[in-house]
Design a protein around this nucleic acid. Structure first.
Lengths: 210, 210
DNA sequence: CGACCTGTTGATTCTGCTCAATCAACGTGG
DNA sequence: CCACGTTGATTGAGCAGAATCAACAGGTCG
């Protein structure tokens, strides 16, 4: 299923360089929870998020899952070191994706390098979160990160469900639920609906992750 | 202090491409615990490990530390997304380092991209460890990783101290100590000395991290 | 309407942390 | 050469944070 685009690629950005060098496909719609690629699939093309949210996952043999990252409109994902994907990518909430084929010689490696380094930087940041922060601090960091990506607004959308948040933060979904509750009780958050929260006391959240 | 090189760069590798494009400096020796660069320093050149071990660290405001990665002979590190380092790099045990200056236009971005993607892949793998594995599993994964890097030998050197291992695995150094003890008691390991262990039962270690 | 799925909340358990003591290795200075 | 201080490692006791187990509520979809 192909649908029309609406995301504006910024002139002169690394992404626009990618777009001109690697003719992108039309937008393909992936319904919620559908796979974009699986662990073990052949790697090669990269993917551009037109709208919606994508999760990148790694799973242990006994089924424990770590969500490496969430990607939203404007993000590029899917580059791999080897010849196959060692993470899977799935649509979280219905996502529109363009595929950018790497035509071997004409790929703008400089632009890809910048994007890869940006991913690496985010990954390093998240390793500190996973390795050295408490559950409360993880949630605070996550909410601020979401808010920042959505334009530093205080009304934050949570397109993913509790389970996804938990698997991203390395806690259980019960813990996610409890922490949101506790932040509500402290007057830090207002839980508008399951997928929408309002930040009432941003300073408190920032204190929690310094 | 400059000393002579002895590490053999493989012909035709991405690293040899880097070496020919970005004339490396002579080897500089960094004594144990000395800084190669600090968080906030201007980024730009990349670094090649000739010998010894380097740790890449991120620290929270209240002093908790996460060791993002250890690098050993043959590794390249130090590339950053932005204009300054957001991790610090320190010598663990006395390390010899070559600096490779990025001459803006002549940098082989394709080779750098491959190295960056390799780092990203390792980072993703470690996120699963930090987010979803128990302390025992983390230690098992760490020992197998070290063994693999040292040529799949059963006699593994631990160049770093317990504190460093702990901060890499997201546990306390007491926990590191206890787990090594417990693996010894189970007959999985032989603790030759503080910095040298022997793997007696590799299959058990592999079972622990699947 | 009932089945199912997601989310919330409570009770209990347990892994790993904190605090603390001890020990071994090493370097320094009397 | 030995007393002393320092630093890293080990071990123990008790505690706390988060997991597990379990019950239930609310919403959605057939």
């Amino acid at each position: 299923m192909h649908i029309q685009s609406n995301f504006r690629v910024q002139e002169g950005s690394d992404i626009s360089a990618l777009f001109s060098a690697m003719k992108p496909t039309a937008v393909t719609f992936y319904p919620a929870d559908s796979a974009i690629y699986a662990q073990g699939d052949a790697a090669g093309p990269v993917y551009f998020v037109e709208f919606g949210t994508v999760r990148i996952c790694r799973v242990t043999a006994d089924g424990r899952r770590q969500i490496i990252a969430f990607h939203t409109a404007g993000d590029v994902f899917g580059f791999e070191a080897g010849h196959e994907h060692d993470c899977s990518a799935e649509s979280v909430d219905g996502a529109g994706i363009r595929v950018l084929r790497t035509n071997c010689n004409e790929t703008p490696t400089g632009s890809l390098l910048k994007l890869a380094l940006a991913s690496l930087s985010r990954a390093q940041c998240h390793m500190l979160v996973l390795g050295r922060r408490t559950a409360n601090e993880r949630m605070a960091a996550f909410l601020l990160d979401l808010s920042e990506r959505q334009g530093d607004t205080n009304l934050v959308r949570l397109p993913m469900q509790r389970n996804d948040i938990a698997d991203h933060l390395g806690v259980t979904f019960e813990t996610v639920s409890r922490i949101l509750r506790s932040l509500k009780d402290q007057g830090v958050l207002l839980l508008r609906s399951i997928h929408e929260i309002e930040i009432l006391d941003r300073a408190s959240l920032e204190d929690m992750c310094e």
